[in-house]
């Protein structure tokens, strides 16, 4: 299994982190071709127990990419919200369904660097245009997750996966670090910084 981190309960992987090398080799278990070539790829079951693993992974990766601390936590929040939506609405709280998270750096000429995160599932499909957050002036519980994702990320695309399920692609570009500043700006005196 090389350098992959794998945790198993009753013979089935519940949280699996693999490297680009392993992803590109393929292992016959993952039907999601679009995840090939991801710099980091995570496979998890649809239980809320594992959302923090995905969130921590994304936060750690974005921190090492040089995102400001507040951006790191907000990108991780967007991933968390997306996973919650899949678990709650897509899989209707079934805890044993697959979710894949892939991470790529955005490194294109003329475009600020950043991160591209793709989340896929095999949950029931819905029309992408129907996925929208509720009106914020209408203060009521629920319906905030999609709004948070769209607010936090620079580009958000929902689409139906060929063969079933949904694909969410989120892109966040890095803001230029101010002269004399550091990537950790935005984390006041360490208070509340999510290590």
């Amino acid at each position: 299994m090389g350098g992959a981190v794998r945790k198993t309960i009753v013979g089935r992987p519940v949280l699996r982190l693999s490297t680009q090398e392993e992803s590109s080799r393929g292992n016959g278990m993952n039907p999601v071709d679009s995840m090939k070539g991801a710099h980091v790829r995570m496979e998890l079951l649809s239980s809320p127990v594992y959302t923090s693993g995905a969130r921590d992974m994304v936060q750690a990766v974005t921190r090492r990419m040089g995102f400001a601390e507040l951006d790191c936590s907000q990108i991780a929040l967007a991933v968390d919200e997306a996973l919650c939506n899949i678990m709650r609405h897509g899989y209707e709280n079934k805890p044993d369904q697959p979710i894949w998270v892939g991470v790529w750096p955005v490194d294109e000429p003329g475009v600020p660097g950043g991160i591209r995160i793709v989340i896929e599932d095999v949950a029931r499909q819905i029309e992408p245009e129907k996925i929208k957050g509720r009106e914020l002036h209408d203060v009521k519980p629920g319906g905030l997750g999609v709004h948070v994702i769209k607010e936090v990320m620079d580009k958000v695309t929902y689409e139906k996966r060929p063969g079933g399920g949904m694909r969410l692609t989120m892109i966040k570009h890095q803001k230029p670090v101010p002269v004399g500043g550091s990537a950790s700006d935005g984390c006041e005196g360490g208070k509340g910084c999510h290590a």
Binding site: H147, E151, G192
Partner: peptide, 17 residues
């Protein structure tokens, strides 16, 4: 609230509610 928790209230426009 720490800064990151407060941020989600701001994003959801609930910081004034």
């Amino acid at each position: 609230m720490n800064e990151k928790v407060f941020a989600i209230f701001k994003i959801a426009r609930l910081d004034t509610v």
